[in-house]
Amino acid sequence: MASEMEKVYNILERNKLQGFYNQFVQLGIESVQDFINGVTDEDLDNMRFTPVQKNKYKYMKDEIQRLGAGPLQNTLTKSLQAYGLYYSFPKCPERREILDMDPQNTIAIVEGLYYLFRELLPSLTKRSGDRIIEDIDVFEYAPVCWAYLLSQAKNESAERENYASISMKAQSTNQRFSEPVYVPGVPEVFERMYVLDIIREGGKIPNCSKLNLTETSIKKATNVEKILLSLPPFMDYYLCWIGYDGTTPKSSFNINSEKTFSQMKAEVENYSHLVIMPPLQLKAVGIEGPRLVLLSHEKLGMYMEKDKKTPQNIVVFDPLAGKSVAVNVDVLANT
């Protein structure tokens, strides 16, 4: 049976609100039922919920009142145990491994991918033919987005991209951030406890526009916090993309897809590892991983190779379990 906090995370994830998990925990949410009377509209405003997110929250709350927490025990749950992943970036092309990541919360990764995919896919404000992809369905079309990005990357060179090293340590303490915050009028990011100590001692922070700085004047540095949650503790800095060959503004980058949704979808077939393979086809000789395969109606896995000890089994990476497992192809085909 899932723990209470796992149930809280799972229902937030089902409603695309998992990015607010930490804030709800800080608010005092300890069970799914706490959402009914434990959160006010003012709390949602303080968390900077958008109108769309408020509608999702209302739907989630109505669902809890209608069904209670019971059905959550039978839904797909995500492990809250630590896990790892492999990554690389342009200035470091070799594959690196990150271990012991905190699975609560890869907020920067998930939200970053969501905004990227949302921008690529047709919406009410950005049509591509007659097709519209609703916000809640964005990740259902992840292979289409990855295919487009991979096709565009063929024409790019990492050597022409510029990165800046951004420290994850507070200048005031030279310690890695734990609770990064901003104070009015100062662009520097501070550690929350450092600011609270200054307030208690009646001190001043240079250039702060608030003459009488109080605890309520402190604003959480959510942009830095999200990066912290996506990096392992041993990393004290990260490389921030700032421009492409000196021609791109430092603030951000723009996506301007000139292809229609149908053209983007057609490109998926060019990348075998983005196409979901029928299990029985994995029996064929010469099929090499990685390949996507459905482990159940709601869960994708990554076919890696055939099990050398048992011919009818294949080795599949289960992303929710965070490990590779042996699966019988015939059983999988009948699932």
Rank of each mutant, 00 (worst) to 15 (best):
V8T: 09
N22H: 10
V25I: 14
V25H: 04
Q26S: 09
D34F: 04
N37R: 14
V39M: 00
T40R: 02
F49H: 03
K58N: 09
K61L: 01
E63V: 09
G68C: 08
S79K: 14
Y83R: 12
P90K: 10
C92D: 11
P93D: 07
V110N: 06
L116Q: 06
R118E: 10
I132E: 11
E134F: 07
L149A: 04
L149R: 01
L150N: 00
Q152R: 11
E156C: 10
E156N: 05
S157E: 13
E161I: 12
A164M: 08
I166P: 02
M168V: 05
K169D: 05
R176I: 06
Y182F: 15
V183K: 06
G185V: 08
G185D: 08
F190Y: 15
I205Y: 10
N207G: 03
K210E: 15
T214Y: 04
I218Y: 08
K219N: 07
P233Y: 08
M235R: 12
D245W: 03
G246M: 04
S257P: 02
S262Q: 15
S262A: 13
E267R: 11
N270T: 02
V275I: 13
G286R: 01
R291G: 00
L292M: 10
V293W: 00
E305I: 01
F317D: 03
A321R: 13
G322N: 06
V325T: 14
N328M: 03
V331G: 01
